[in-house]
Amino acid sequence: MTFKLIINGKTLKGETTTEAVDAATAEKVFKQYFNDNGIDGEWTYDDATKTFTITE
């Protein structure tokens, strides 16, 4: 399955996707992406659209 990440950061904005077997696996991938890029904020997940959103 394809999961999308929408980034609404102070310095970084955009979208990316990842292929994962489930939302929990995608969450781990995206959290690592947050850490690697110094993004910290509030994030949500919409199961209907398989979209994670992080807002700094």
Rank of each mutant, 00 (worst) to 15 (best):
Y33R: 07
F3V: 02
F30Q: 00
D36T: 10
T53D: 01
K28H: 08
A24N: 07
T17E: 07
D22Q: 01
T17K: 07
Q32R: 11
E19C: 13
I39Y: 08
I6Q: 03
T17Y: 14
K50N: 07
I39V: 08
K13Q: 10
L5W: 03
L12I: 12
E19M: 14
F3M: 01
T55Y: 08
T51I: 04
N37Y: 15
E56T: 10
T55H: 07
T49D: 03
I39L: 12
E27T: 04
F52K: 00
I54Y: 14
G14I: 15
T11S: 09
T53V: 06
L12D: 06
D46C: 06
K50T: 03
G14N: 08
K31G: 03
G14F: 15
D36K: 10
T55W: 11
W43Y: 05
A48V: 10
D36L: 12
K13I: 11
K10Q: 10
D46K: 02
T44H: 10
E56K: 04
K10W: 12
V29W: 13
T25C: 06
L12R: 07
D40Q: 14
Q32A: 12
D47T: 06
V21F: 11
I7W: 12
T11P: 04
I7T: 03
T25W: 06
D22P: 01
D22L: 02
D46E: 06
N35R: 14
F30W: 04
G14C: 15
F34W: 12
V29L: 11
F34M: 15
T49N: 05
K4E: 02
E15L: 08
K10F: 13
T11N: 13
Y45L: 01
G9F: 15
K28Y: 09
N35E: 13
T17W: 14
N35D: 13
E27F: 15
K13F: 11
I54N: 01
T11Q: 08
F3R: 01
K4C: 08
E56Y: 12
T18C: 14
T44P: 00
A20C: 07
Y33I: 09
G9P: 03
N37F: 15
T25I: 06
T49F: 04
F34Y: 13
D40Y: 14
N37Q: 14
N8S: 07
W43K: 00
I6V: 10
D40C: 13
N37M: 15
T53H: 05
D46Y: 02
F30K: 00
K50H: 12
N35T: 13
I54R: 03
Y45D: 00
E56M: 12
E15M: 09
E42R: 08
A23E: 05
E27I: 10
T44Q: 08
D22Y: 02
G41F: 15
I39P: 04
T11I: 12
E56L: 15
D47V: 09
T11F: 14
G38H: 12
T44I: 07
M1R: 07
T53A: 04
D22C: 03
G9I: 15
N37S: 13
A48T: 11
D40W: 14
A23S: 08
K4W: 11
K10V: 14
Y45N: 00
K10C: 14
T16V: 15
G9S: 11
E27H: 09
F30D: 00
F30T: 00
T18M: 12
E19F: 15
T25M: 11
D40V: 14
I39W: 12
T16H: 14
T16L: 15
